[in-house]
Computed example of a mutant assay.
Amino acid sequence: MINPLQGIAEAQTLAQAIVNTIHEPLLVLDGELRVMAASRAFYETFKVDEAHTRGALLYDLGDGQWDIPALRLLLETIIPERAAMDDFEVSHDFPGVGQRTMLLNARKVVYETSPDHTILLAFTDITARRGLEQELAALLTRTEALLEQKQILLQEMEHRVANSLQIIASILMLKARGVTSPETRDHLRDAHQRVMSVAAVQSHLHAVEGIGEVGVGPYLTKLCEGLGRSMIAEDRPIALAVTADDGRMSSGQAVSVGLIVTELVINAVKYAFPAGRDGALVRVVYESRGENWKLTVADNGIGKTPGLATASVGEVTGGLGTVIVQALVKQLDARLEVVSDDGGMTVTVERASF
């Protein structure tokens, strides 16, 4: 059994030993706020010596460096009412130490056998932490400013790209109207549609605030609406229908898919219904599952149309449209399949498998 301490001297020795083992600055104050004891960390941190600290009034320490209004508020107002206070922040320029930000923890100790009381006052130096927080806040402010500048530049670039694409498309259409060769006119109009398909992606990205992914359904719907308005004449009614799930893909992939759809729709509208037909229909279907997807463009025309109808998978044959489609399919790491018969032609571009 451990014997109780004999006398006040032993108790004081133990108390001082306990105080000295604490790594953070600690003061023990009496009811009049005079220093009864201080930890070794206190002396080392604030560059004071024991002879001028013990027995001195707290506010007189170090030529009055502890006569801080915030500390007076803590010790003379808050502690008498609450008996304890945690994380009371004080910033002060201490002589010989410099500007420091401290968290003060205070406890009022009341004794059963005496009307006197003691106050334990512990200090945690958070100067470095606050400095880091200020640096992070400043960095965040600068980052937000840079992001705002980047957004402004992106918006300006989007406007410039959109204007450039419109100018190119307009020039192609003007050239198409001015040439006398039907073949050259068709090539210019096809080029116009290809430019417009890229413009549709750019416009869609701008509408959704330039995010890196595109909703495929809305994009293909908008693209095909534009193709229908520019290619399908009133005297050749051809329905152009789009069915797509809620899949998404990167803007780069969307450009490639949009160009593929443009080529296939151009091919179907130009060649699938040479004599006109009631119920003429071109269907664009997009299905996705995770990173895998399948695009189908089908028509109910005559079936044997130029280009893709005679092209083998992975083989670069046919006209420019065929070369473009096969190159884009390869770029997307997808597989091309063409089925053509008297009931029409179906072109499938599939990435991976369902």
Score class of each variant (00 low, 15 high):
Val329Pro: 12
Leu328Ile: 00
Asp190His: 12
Ile79Val: 12
Pro69Ile: 01
Gly276Ile: 10
Gly276Thr: 11
Thr348Arg: 12
Leu57Met: 06
Ala233Asn: 08
Ala298Tyr: 04
Glu32Lys: 09
Ala241Ile: 09
Val297Met: 04
Gly303Asp: 03
Ala137Cys: 02
Lys294Ser: 13
Gly178Arg: 12
Pro237Ala: 12
Met345Tyr: 05
Phe94Pro: 01
Glu156Tyr: 10
Lys150Arg: 09
Gly247Cys: 01
Glu135Ser: 08
Val285His: 13
Ser181Cys: 05
Leu188Phe: 05
Gln99Lys: 13
Ser170Ala: 15
Leu136Gly: 07
Leu140His: 14
Thr127Phe: 12
Arg248Asn: 06
Glu225Arg: 15
Thr184Gln: 14
Lys270Ala: 14
Leu188Glu: 03
Ile238Asn: 03
Thr262Met: 13
Pro218Ala: 01
Leu73Ile: 02
Ala41Arg: 00
Leu264Arg: 03
Arg142Gln: 13
Lys175Val: 07
Thr310Glu: 14
His52Asn: 15
Tyr271Pro: 00
Leu29Trp: 01
Gly226Thr: 02
Ala37Ser: 11
Thr305Ala: 08
Val35Met: 08
Ala83Gly: 02
Gly343Asp: 14
Ala83Lys: 10
Glu156Val: 10
His206Val: 06
Met102Cys: 15
Thr317Arg: 02
Val313Thr: 14
Ala207Val: 03
Gly62His: 05
Val208Trp: 00
Val338Ala: 07
Gly321Thr: 03
Ile152Ser: 11
Ala51Trp: 05
Leu136Asp: 06
Ser203Trp: 07
Glu148Phe: 05
Glu263Tyr: 06
Ala9Thr: 14
